[in-house]
Amino acid sequence: MQAATKHLSGAVEPDAVSSTGFVLGRYVPQLFFTCAAILLPFLVNALWLKVLTAVAIYALTAASIALLYRRLGLVSLAQVALMGCGGWVALRFAHAFGLPFEVNLMAGGIFAGLIGMILAYPALRMRGLYLALITLMAAGGFGILINVIQFPNGGGGLTGFEVRAITYMPRPVIAISDAAYFSYCMVVIAFGFLLIDVHERGRAGRGWALIRKSEASAMAAGVNVTLYKVWGFALSGFLAGVAGALLAGNLQLLDARSFPPAESVMIFALTVVGGAWHWYGAVIAALLYRLVPAFLNDLGLDGNAAYIIFGLALIHALITAPKGLAGQLSDGLKRLARRGPNA
């Protein structure tokens, strides 16, 4: 509980233990994702490669949620809807202009970032459950809206949707196959985590830490509270939008029914379970969100039984692991490390 309070107060905990490992330690996530990008395509078959691609994409979404939660103490229950926004724009751009995938990816990210800035507006006046519910309402509204206007399928007009069989969104030229696309996603995600890291260690991170402690003292210290809150939401929205564009590229289409508000709540819940205070908490969250259900499905377990297991495990993890599974894991490792030399 003590440690949790320390985290809640916004103190930045150094990731690296020793000073020599500091530089390397800082880039552990990037190393991890790069290794995964190179090795995993050789180790797993087509099914698990697809599943792991989804895991990678949702890890970025979970990281975008964890960023807001960890740094600003804000809860966004609209991240899956923001993914939908990013995915919509990426699809629309891809079908309308035939530009390279990277341009569509950035366009999706930037659009979702702008929507994130709009969500920051209520965050200037509210926090806690109220803010969370406002974002949930936004996600609910998006779910209805997208059901009516639909994701672009290669049609004309503003919405890019026509009632006919779908035209698939092209993948990046260097990542046409499933294996290459997996590695591509991993690289994008490594950059995403780097972007978060750079922000947390820079000016924005210091501003967020002060805001989290007390907005009054942040203001007294000359921190522009409005700016940094909007900045946080914009960054979080951008990352979710990029994840949405990656998802669009993965399936080469998006389906409106994939973005109900309950999914946004679900991925937030799993981010808390995974642990918002460690970078790999987001990876754990994504594994829980996509790998575990796929595993249960592959075992031939009834989808409804999987729901029961999933729901109960969620409750159990929330009660027993207040710092998330990543917190438990890292505490366990630290204890081992401390005991190590004596043994």
Partner: peptide, 9 residues
């Protein structure tokens, strides 16, 4: 849709 893509693959 994601699961549909996975199981078909």
């Amino acid at each position: 849709p994601e699961v549909a893509g996975q199981v078909a693959t």
